[in-house]
Design a protein around this nucleic acid. Sequence first.
DNA 1: TAGATTGTTAATCGATTAACAATC
DNA 2: TAGATTGTTAATCGATTAACAATC
Lengths: 222, 222
Amino acid sequence: MAEDGLQVPAASVARLPLYLRCLEELCANGVATVSSSRLAELAGVNAAKLRKDLSHLGSYGTRGVGYEVINLTHEIQRELGLDEQSPVIVVGLGNLGQALAKHGGFGDRGFPIVALFDVQPDIVGMQIGDLVVAHFDDLAGIVAHYKARTAIISTPADAAQQVTDDVIAAGITSVLNFAPTVVQVGEGVALRQVDLALELQILSYYQPRSDSERDTKLRLSV
Amino acid sequence: MAEDGLQVPAASVARLPLYLRCLEELCANGVATVSSSRLAELAGVNAAKLRKDLSHLGSYGTRGVGYEVINLTHEIQRELGLDEQSPVIVVGLGNLGQALAKHGGFGDRGFPIVALFDVQPDIVGMQIGDLVVAHFDDLAGIVAHYKARTAIISTPADAAQQVTDDVIAAGITSVLNFAPTVVQVGEGVALRQVDLALELQILSYYQPRSDSERDTKLRLSV
DNA sequence: TAGATTGTTAATCGATTAACAATC
DNA sequence: TAGATTGTTAATCGATTAACAATC
């Protein structure tokens, strides 16, 4: 139960947004009630794991029936702290940063992008979507004005640590780093790192290879 | 030892590209030898974990000395199957797809993007970087021509499953899905899914909150 | 009631980490 | 040799899953 102050295990926390996405799709399709086995199928996970994950939030299902879609949606949103909108800033407006800034998926899910920052003279002042890129020197005032707590870092690797330090100094407490380098943050700051090329390198290991001396790791479907 | 055909644990596989990135940075800085504790520090992981991960590849360190940077780089590349370039296709050239297509980081790390596909009349024919967007109807021939085995899916959610099925039918065996929906693949196909907004929702849980009835989960640094 | 499905238990599995013998 | 660091052991920790009593 959330009221107990018990932590939800990290592996469960990482799956809750996935369930949320599936629930929202069910809701959009007019489905009112869903069983753990059906929701697990949609999310691509084991049904027992899903029930275990949900049990950390409390008992919101009905035995013999399932979960009420709208109710469970709200409980997961509450647990994740998605009750209110969280303004987000983006630092580094190269190709990826521009795409992230124009990407509607953040605002749709409670994370409106409110400000963009760069230092390049040819990028500062550029209009991207509804926003104009500000100079990184103006960070502190703008972050304070919007009460932004979350930053997306999409700078080159060699700038990422300094930018991270600076946004934290300006009041940011959640950092999503897309720069291909490890950044360090102190306690009290939440951090996730996404490296797009790294994902392809992980996939490479599982790619069936016949040319190598190693046995094929996955068989093609029968 | 890789020659034994023993599988490297999934958690270790997911970290090997991270070590690789750190090693390449060390190499660029002219560092010839590195200890597990230094490399672990750069990668942001525990040193014992790093040594355990590397032990699955074989014994490539020297006690009392450390690891030779170039040698270890090659061993990790070999283990991941990064010996040769892997041509990649991108399907769905919206904001994100365009950014991924222009993103130099893939080609730099052995994954040159060789073809782009969409179905929208205003996108097919568009030049993005060095490439022109092809129609998805021409998928099979182009995949065969480039011998592409890896696909990046950046379509809307409602198209992702059909696109995934089609690229697999065309010969793709590794799929990196950015569409915000779960896609299912059969055996013999490797799959990873990245949902950008989902990362922000996970961060939200760990964001210190004083307004909630729940205790703050992380303290601000002392 | 009978059928269905949750919430939880307990067993298993896999990942992490400190410690240290091996050894350069 | 003495100091340093790997590779591995073993203990611990956390995650997964099948099974089923509880119960709608």
